[in-house]
Design a binder for these strands. Structure first.
Ligand code: FES
Ligand code: FES
Lengths: 153, 153
DNA sequence: TTGAACTGCGACAAAATCAGTCCTATACTG
DNA sequence: CAGTATAGGACTGATTTTGTCGCAGTTCAA
C-alpha cells in the first residue's frame, strides 16, 4: 500500500532516460522498453498519456518517438504521477466527485488531507532532473531540496 | 494509487476514537465499528494486529475491549500504518527480501527511496493526538508540526 | 456453572485494481 | 508503397484488497 503503480514507475524511468539523453532528437517507446526490459506496449501507453497531458512531444513514423516538451528541471515527479495514476489521494475517499460511504462519520479525513498535501509537496519538489542527478555513485545528492512544511496557513 | 488501505483508515479512526475517550476503560471493536458504520469483524482484525504490535492493550470477556497502551501523543500515524499495512515502500520493489525483476536496470530506485523517506517522515511527525486535535471546526490547527527535510545527510 | 459478550485466528469468497496483451487505425519517412 | 512509429480500445489474467464465516479461548456476572 501507499505504493506507486508500475506504470508510474515506468513513466518516471522513461522521463529520466529522456532527460539523460538530450542529444537524441527523439526516442521510441521500444528503445526505452528494451533498455530497461519492460513491456513495450505498456510503456507506449504510459508515454502516450504523458504526451496527452503535454509533458512529452511525440512524433510518429520512422525514426519517430518521444522527447521532453519542457526542460527536465521543470517537470516534477508529481506531474508525472498525477498524469499516469490520476489525482493523488491518500485517503480512500476521493474528496471530489463521489464521496466514500463513511463520509459523514469519518473523522480522519481532515487531518489526513494535510498529510496528503505534504506528500504532494514532496513530490512536487522533486524534478526529473533531480532524479537523473542522483545517478552519482556516492551519497552526495545534488543541491538540497526545499523544506516542506506540514502546516498550511 | 499511493492510497492508504481501508484497514489503515479504520485503524486510524479507531485509535483516534480511543484517544478521544480516555474515560472509558476499554472499548470493544463492535462499539467503534457501530459508531462509524464499518464492518465489525474487519475492524476487530485491525485492532488485533495493533494489539500484537503493542499499540493497544486488549481485554477479552464481557465489558472487554481495547485501550491505548501509550499516550496518544506518542503514537505516530506511521506506526499505525506500518503495523497494519506492513513496511512503507513507495516503489514497486520492496528493497528487502525479494527484489523486483527490473532491479539491475531500474534507475529510479535511489531517488525514490528519498521520497519514500520524506513521506515516512511526514507520517512519523503526526501523532494520533494531533489527529484528534484537528477536530476543531475552523481552520486553526493545533500547534505547527515540525518541518520535514527532503535531504538526508 | 452457565451463558452472554468479548478477543484471537485461520480460511475463504467477493470485489476491485493493476498489469499486460492483442488488434486495428493512423501518421510519417524515404 | 513498405516499413516503422504513435494512438487507443478491448480484453484477459494476476494480484491485492475487502469482507465474511466459523471456531476456540477468555472473562464476567447472574
Ligand atoms: S475515508 Fe472517506 S470520508 Fe474518510
Ligand atoms: S522498481 Fe524495482 S528496482 Fe526499481
Amino acid at each position: 500500500m501507499l505504493r506507486l503503480t508500475k506504470k508510474a514507475d515506468y513513466g518516471l524511468m522513461a522521463l529520466k532516460y529522456l532527460a539523460e539523453h538530450p542529444d537524441s532528437v527523439s526516442v521510441s517507446a521500444k528503445d526505452i522498453a528494451d533498455t530497461y526490459g519492460i513491456p513495450a506496449q505498456l510503456l507506449a501507453k504510459v508515454l502516450q498519456r504523458l504526451t496527452k497531458v503535454g509533458l512529452l512531444r511525440s512524433h510518429a513514423g520512422m525514426n519517430g518517438g518521444y522527447e521532453l516538451s519542457r526542460e527536465a528541471r521543470t517537470i516534477s515527479a508529481f506531474e508525472v504521477i498525477h498524469a499516469i495514476d490520476g489525482p493523488l489521494f491518500i485517503t480512500s475517499c476521493t474528496k471530489g466527485s463521489k464521496s466514500c460511504d463513511l463520509e459523514p462519520n469519518c473523522t480522519i479525513k481532515e487531518p489526513l488531507a494535510r498529510v496528503n498535501d505534504s506528500i504532494a509537496g514532496v513530490l512536487k519538489s522533486i524534478s526529473i532532473h533531480d532524479m537523473a542527478d542522483y545517478e552519482l555513485p556516492s551519497g552526495r545528492g545534488a543541491e538540497p531540496h526545499p523544506l516542506v512544511s506540514l502546516t498550511r496557513t
